[in-house]
């Protein structure tokens, strides 16, 4: 007997009382100013937000960051920010280890926890989000949902092989509960919120 048949039979031989699946369409937590709340949450999780009017402003703000100014290898898919690393030329995600900064789009943010949603649809290698030293994500300031229920309602989960809510930079508290930013992934996360 295969493992599958055995397990399913072992489950079905038990009579488990039925229970209804709850309706999740409820009035969940909302915020008077979701964008402001989002910004507060991003700061609380160790990230940085910058409101900008256009991508030229993104380029300008980035240029004021010393880590960006010193960056040798930049990958960008945002208009107006030049790539200095030819992403398309690499044939294995391992080569992306050399990238200092990536500047990429994000789809939307979630006010309750400061997370933003990204997918690997437009990327050659999804490792880019995680392997770079610093990550900047650009999203429209109006694309902030209130809570995770709204977030999942607007996702089409499964259309990409990877979708990630990213909330702040990579971090760990595994040594005596001391928070250390930059565990394995990016050492910083900057979110550019583009206002209309």
């Amino acid at each position: 007997m295969s493992g599958k048949v055995a397990i399913l039979e072992a489950i079905r031989k038990h009579r488990v009382p039925a229970a209804a699946l709850p309706n999740l369409e409820r009035s969940w937590l909302r915020f008077a100013d979701p964008l402001a709340h989002f910004e507060g949450q991003v700061a609380a999780v160790g990230g940085r937000t910058v409101r900008v009017r256009n991508s030229a402003e993104v380029a300008h703000v980035l240029s004021t960051y010393s880590e960006f100014a010193q960056a040798k290898q930049v990958v960008s898919s945002i208009d107006g920010i030049a790539s200095t690393f030819a992403q398309d030329a690499v044939t294995t995600p391992h080569d992306l280890e050399a990238v200092d900064w990536a500047v990429l789009p994000a789809q939307f943010g979630v006010a309750e926890n400061g997370a933003v949603w990204v997918t690997d649809e437009q990327l050659k290698y999804r490792a880019l989000y995680f392997i770079v030293q610093h990550l900047a994500l650009v999203l429209p300031a109006r694309e902030i949902v209130h809570n995770m229920h709204e977030a999942y309602a607007r996702l089409a989960l499964g259309t990409s092989s990877l979708g990630v809510f990213i909330s702040g930079p990579s971090k760990t508290a595994d040594i005596e509960q001391s928070l250390v930013i930059g565990a394995h992934g990016p050492r910083s996360l900057t979110l550019f919120l583009v206002e209309d």
């Binding site: 997370a115 995680f130 809570n147 499964g158 990877l162």
Partner: peptide, 27 residues
């Protein structure tokens, strides 16, 4: 949609974070 419920509960219960830094959906 059930993820909305569990993702909201998990990290808050575990460490007091509103969500983990990475919540990755593999399909």
């Amino acid at each position: 949609q059930d993820l909305g419920v569990f993702v909201r509960l998990l990290a808050r219960s575990a460490t007091g974070q509103p969500i983990t830094a990475y919540t990755s959906h593999f399909h």
